[in-house]
Amino acid sequence: MAQIRAENVEKHFGHVQALGRLHLEVETNEFVSVLGPSGCGKTTLLRIVAGLVPPDGGTVYVDGEPVTGPRPNTTLVFQHFRLLPWRTAEDNVAYGLRLRGMAKRQAREEVRPYIEMVGLEGFEKSYPYQLSGGMQQRVGLARALAIDPEILLMDEPFGALDAQTREVMQEELLRIWNATHKTVVFVTHSIDEALVLSDKVVVMAARPGRIIETIEVPFPRPRPTNLRADPVFAQLRTRMWELLRTTEPEETGVAGG
């Protein structure tokens, strides 16, 4: 049985149909990317799966239970990091544990492996404003991992980073995912990113937001760093490009925000 199952999910904002009768299934420990142009409702879908907003129709099931609100076994990683500016990096990472009633000192101990996992050693006492965007997102990632969730929902987590940092972070995420094997739903508008990271790519189109194609990514894991040179990569890339282009000619959805 799929760990996440969205059935007939609908969402409207005023007259705009953000999502129309959408179906999605994500297996346990699967890495699924949701790829689509800006405004196709992919972030809305993620927020519904997270339980942050209710759908107007349909239901999302996680582990067979309908989602009615945020769940402790699911965490989000946000595009703009959303760190608490008045807390140090380690205390931001410890945020979820502190909410679960853990004492500050113990929480700082507990998060140490996660700080190491994302490569934040030496920056534990830094405040967010003292960190670069890439480092801030490492904090965001460690914060999500520290509560050891089964499901990680990532909303264009590298969208606010520059191209190089982005690739570094993709590699880091692959390494971490190989070590932890969470179920991941990863929203992106970058074809390359979706291909490099995922087991399965779900391509969405806008107005109404819907899934137009689901593509299995055949590359074995762990993935080589020169994956982009693989001819199959180029083929899949072209195919996704065509899909995005035919659905949304004015917004090809590679560069924009």
Partner: peptide, 12 residues
């Protein structure tokens, strides 16, 4: 609002 939603997402 972003930070309030963050708190929500962590079931605060």
């Amino acid at each position: 609002r972003d930070l309030l939603e963050l708190a929500d997402s962590f079931c605060s």
